[in-house]
């Protein structure tokens, strides 16, 4: 089936694309951010750069989850499964076939997408809390497979000794080069998500999120759209996983466990669901709290994390992105992503 016109299908939030000059202006903060991130290794110490790389990996995971949570209205507790599948696939291929870029990235995307398709076809039929539970179950089953399938995944010891990715035969042998690789992959994945969200297809997804029966009445079949969104999100999460394998050089079952999935969800909510860039900020907060602040609390990092959860729900009902967007008049649809 083909959507008739985007104009009548789309909810009011999905306005037509702005004219070119405005669009350029809108892209400016994004471009500036990328330049800043690319310049970071030049003036940051190695550990700070490593942390930044880790944030980028997690940000891409959070942004891909946002495509489900914020744009399609499918809150998943099992999204880390596809992140993990991508990471294992990329790690395995790096060890056994080739570390040459972009092979591991493509493998992550392909395996993440296939895994999402294999589980999504029945998952997206359920809704609400049942979708939460079903994705939780899928995530746990996939984690269990990773733990049990020793010969491929290395079991609970994980897949270790993953080689550095290499470009034209030369391994990316320092923290800065590795950071640029991660940045390139993250920007690529984010661009895909943005393109999807800004397209007529993305407008239909928002329509499904806001009012599924209405979209049905308009002649759309939400199932196909939801499944497609699920597969795209899974595939981008797989890319994030491939970046994790390169950055951490180790993939373990905990990378696709419930904790990772819950933290990704937290990043989405902190940043503001439905904006794509908000969850990236949320991811930065989560990684900094967990890796930088947590260890200084005498091992009581989870306490701080719990307080953050509670505070975010009360104080930032629309996430960090909502704070900015709420200010302007006539911006009711705070979830709308700046195209």
């Amino acid at each position: 089936m083909t959507p008739r016109t985007t104009a009548d299908a789309a909810p009011p939030s999905a306005t037509a694309a702005p004219e070119p000059p405005r669009r350029l202006l809108r892209a400016a903060p994004m471009a500036a951010t990328v330049v800043l991130l690319a310049a970071a290794p030049l003036f940051l110490a190695p550990y700070a750069t490593t942390t930044l790389s880790r944030i980028l990996v997690f940000a891409l995971l959070a942004a891909s989850l946002d495509l489900l949570v914020g744009i399609t209205g499918l809150p998943s507790l099992g999204h880390a499964a596809y992140f993990g599948v991508g990471a294992y696939a990329a790690g395995w291929i790096t060890i056994h076939l080739t570390p040459a870029v972009p092979v591991p990235l493509l493998a992550g995307a392909a395996f993440g997408g296939v895994a999402a398709a294999a589980t999504g076809w029945f998952a997206v039929r359920s809704a609400g809390v049942f979708f939460l539970m079903l994705t939780l179950a899928i995530g746990e089953i996939v984690r269990q497979v990773a733990q049990s399938w020793d010969s491929v995944t290395g079991g609970s010891n994980g897949l270790y000794g993953i080689d550095l990715p290499s470009v034209a035969g030369a391994p990316l042998g320092n923290v800065g080069l590795l950071h640029w690789y991660v940045l390139a992959g993250a920007v690529l994945g984010y661009a895909v998500l943005r393109a999807v969200a800004a397209s007529p297809f993305g407008a239909v997804l928002r329509g499904i999120r806001d009012n599924e029966p209405r979209m049905r009445a308009l002649g759309y079949r939400p199932y196909g759209y939801k499944l497609a969104a699920f597969v795209i999100a899974g595939s981008v999460a797989g890319v994030a996983g491939a970046l994790l394998a390169a950055q951490q050089r180790l993939v373990t079952p905990s990378d696709l466990g419930f904790t990772t999935a819950a933290l990704a969800l937290l990043a989405v909510v902190i940043g503001g669901a439905g904006t794509l860039w908000g969850p990236c900020l949320g991811a930065a907060v989560v990684v900094l709290v967990r890796d930088a602040l947590g260890p200084t609390l005498d091992g009581h990092g989870p306490l701080l994390l719990g307080v953050v959860f509670i505070a975010v729900v009360y104080l930032l009902p629309r996430g960090a992105a909502g704070v900015r967007l709420r200010r302007g008049p006539g911006r009711e649809q705070s979830e709308q992503e700046p195209t």
């Binding site: 190695p46 550990y47 880790r54 890796d291 947590g294 260890p295």
Partner: peptide
């Protein structure tokens, strides 16, 4: 002293931190 936590998701960054920072 660096906190290894419960597994690699916290342990590996802890090792990187003592080495790099």
């Amino acid at each position: 002293v660096a906190d290894e936590g419960e597994g690699p998701e916290s342990g590996v960054p802890a090792v990187q931190r003592v080495l790099q920072r």
